[in-house]
Amino acid sequence: MMGLLYSTLAIFRIELHRILSARMIWLVGLVFFLPSLTFFLRPPPLGPQQSLLLYAFVLYIYYQALLPLAALLYASSTIRDEQDQRTLGYLLLRPTPRWLILVAKFFACALVLTTLSCASITWCHVAYWKLKGATLPAGYHHLPTLGWALALAVAGSFSFLAVFSVISTLFRRALVAGLIYAFFIETVLTWVPAMVARLSCVFYLRSLLLRPPFGDPSLQKRIEEGMNLFEVPSRSTSSISLLLVTLVCIILSSIIFTFREYAAQSES
């Protein structure tokens, strides 16, 4: 049992080293801090409600575009880069179950992605509400507002990483497959009426963003109507859906990784 723990930690460390020593982390970090420029380029709206709307819009850019993109970059590189550098054989030829290799890699990616996204969202919060002096509407406080945004970033990071892990274990060109998925499922479908939108993670993240467990319900209602949103699921439905997507996708990618033959592909 301890042996398994040690080997899992070793894979975690290797993956972390791989991610942190790659140039991609600088690129992702830079892109993650770009939305905060919005607040510096234009003054905050006069009213607290408009200020909240602008803040929510910027957060939505994170969940709709930046998180999936960063998750795709990391999830697709976990296997592909090891195959390209032909180091995957080292991991597969160790007495560690293959599913555990993937899970350890997943958590290393999740750690990096959540750290980056939480840092940039915190910076956004400080920049907008403190440095630029925007005012929060009644019923909203800094700590819960920031806490909710961070919780969604963590939930989004895990669910997107899990979804793209499945894609990366299935396809050699995971980046292309992931981009197609991100465009059609996580962008186009989220605005399609009826049940179709429920196939995307962004739909649930958006629902959670619109319905925090604090604040003014009537304001939330007005925003939903203003955005022409069809049916917004409850917080618990959205949270459980994201959790299930994450778990199912991790299990699925672990199964695929266990039975696929990666070494042969890299040799041939």
């Binding site: 070793a10 080293h17 550098q85 032909r86 180091t87 054989g89 080292y90 560690t96």
Partner: peptide, 24 residues
């Protein structure tokens, strides 16, 4: 050549040995 190029030789061998269930 199959390496994690930015690791030191010691780090590389240590991590791959730890994968066999040894503590760091």
């Amino acid at each position: 050549d199959r390496f994690y190029w930015t690791m030191t030789g010691l780090q590389f061998v240590t991590e791959l040995t730890a994968l066999h269930g040894f503590s760091r």
